[in-house]
Amino acid sequence: MGLFTKTEETASVGPAGGDKDLTKKKTRQICWDSRDKFFACLDKHNIVDAIKDSELATAKCPKEEKQYEADCIASWIDYFKQKRTMEYNKEQMLKKFEEQGAVKVEPNVSFK
């Protein structure tokens, strides 16, 4: 066995001796649960953009934000905050279009 090679025994074992995939799934789920709690708190206080309104978000949801930041990696934290704002803006734009009489057209795509 070489110095940097993995054997079948160690290839799927994580740092705590468990399955790496299972550990990743648990870690993701913990992050998503914390994110959902934080975003629910933001919704409760009518805060859409947690980046632009970061001081207000921290003031209104300090416990949820702290847990969210502890449970998720930094790149996910920013990504989910940006995605939340983008999805809100998209919903508002679609509502505006509907109010103006726009009709949603489904693409007619066929693959042969």
Rank of each mutant, 00 (worst) to 15 (best):
K52V: 01
D49K: 04
S34H: 03
I51M: 15
R28H: 09
M86V: 14
I47Q: 04
D78S: 15
D33I: 07
D43A: 07
S34I: 00
F38L: 03
S54A: 13
M93G: 02
F39K: 05
A70R: 14
T27E: 10
C72G: 02
N89Y: 05
I51N: 10
Q29C: 05
E91N: 13
C72W: 01
K26P: 00
Q92M: 10
L94T: 08
I73T: 09
D49V: 00
D71E: 09
I51E: 06
L94C: 09
I73F: 11
L42F: 01
Y79V: 06
K81C: 05
K66R: 11
D49R: 07
D43M: 10
K81H: 12
S54L: 04
D78K: 14
K90D: 01
K90C: 04
R84C: 07
A74E: 14
M86R: 15
Q92H: 07
N46G: 07
E91S: 13
R35N: 08
A57W: 00
K37F: 11
L94Y: 12
M93W: 10
M93P: 01
D36F: 09
S75D: 10
T23V: 10
K26R: 06
Y88L: 02
K66H: 12
N89C: 06
Y79W: 09
K24G: 01
K66F: 12
E55G: 14
N89P: 00
K52G: 10
Q82S: 12
H45L: 02
A50N: 03
P62K: 01
Q29W: 09
